[in-house]
Each structure stands twice: as C-alpha cells, then as structure tokens.
Amino acid sequence: MESRIIDRPSFAHIRVDMSAGDRLVAESDAMASMTSNIQLKARFNGGLFRALVRRLFGGESLFVNEYSTDGTGHVILTQPTPGDIECLELRGNTLYLQGGAFIACEAGVKLGVGWAGLASLIGGEGLFRLKVGGHGKVWFGAYGGIFAREVEGEYIVDTGHLVAYEPSVSLRARLSGGLLSSFFSGEGLVTRVRGPGRIYLQTRSIAALAAWTNSHLV
C-alpha cells in the first residue's frame, strides 16, 4: 500500500494506492473518489457499543468504511474542512486525536475512545478523545495548517488549536493571564500542555471562524 498527501496544505487530500490484500479503514464520507475495483464495506466503528461511544463522545461517525481490492487501484480520501492532513506511522505507540480529526488508518491501527478530562472540556476540545494505537499509518486532518511540536516542559496553546497529542503529554486549562486581561485580550482560557511528548497543532480554529462569521451575519 502506497500513499501520499496531495495539494498540501490548503486543500490536502490523500491518495492511497492499494493492491490485493491491502485493507484501509476510513471515516465514513471521507472518500472523494476511487477506482471501480475497490470494494467498500461499511462496518460499525469497532462493534456497536464502541461505535456508539465514539459517535456520541468522540465526534466520529457510527460507521467506518473498510476499503479492499482484488487487483490494484486507488482511493482518494479527504476531509470536510480546508486544511492540511498529516500522516503518522504508529509503532506500538499511542496518540490522542481531537474529535473529528481522524480520517483514515491502516488495518493494524486500533481505534478507541478515552476520557479526556475536564481540562480538555474547558479547553474546548471535548470531554472524550479518540485514541489510536497499534501499528500502521494514521491520517488525521485539521482546519488550516498542521505543525508538530516536541514539548519538553510547559507550552501554551490557545483553545481549539490542539489537534493531537501523545498520552505522555498532560493538559491543563488555565486563564491566559489575570482575570481582566484574560477577558480583554480575547484569549480567555488557554491550555497549558506539559511534556515530554509531541503535540500537533492547527493554525486555524473553527470556533474562531464561527464566532467571526456570526459577528457578520445580518
């Protein structure tokens, strides 16, 4: 199975070339186009109960699609928001993804939902997070560009910009400054992340776009 990410960073999409025996799991509705010899099978996102949990709390869909083929072909996968897509190869390590970031993974990757804690909720990242582990490639997307950062010690991220992080990273919701400057700086709450470990950030925030759009309605 060969894959590459095309048209980065603004309108990134993934092209996966598949041959007989390859299996690819993707978020439902992620497929933009594919060759006709690719078989698509919808299945629950890891069993009914787990799928429901992921749907309700992880921001993911109830079904995932499994792609396979008898010959050779390709699938083009994409995401709803304009922005970059990142590919990460898991080697037995684990990564937490914010709701909606997951796009696809190879068959060796396990999907689960974990409790993210109140800090994550207050930080605007949701009470639960998607957990990907095992072996194989994972593709996840963001709104805007994605950049990774190795965090050693503390680092501060504005709410809504954190896309993914390793379990070795802790999150804490904090005021950006004093009570007044937190309010007037427009930053409000921020997430204080503490390493060691890697975090993935998006350069734009959907919530900020929504707020900006709302202020221009009517």
């Binding site: 990460l88 190869e89 898991l90 080697r91 037995g92 390590n93 684990t94 582990g133 190795e150 390793e166 070795s168 060691p196 470990g197 890697r198």
Partner: peptide
Amino acid sequence: GVFDKRLQGGRAG
C-alpha cells in the same frame, strides 16, 4: 513506550 532519537520518528511502543 520509548522516546529516543535513534528510533524512526523518535518514538515507539
């Protein structure tokens, strides 16, 4: 897991 620069990607389970 392990973090080490010698590993591909710097990390592994």
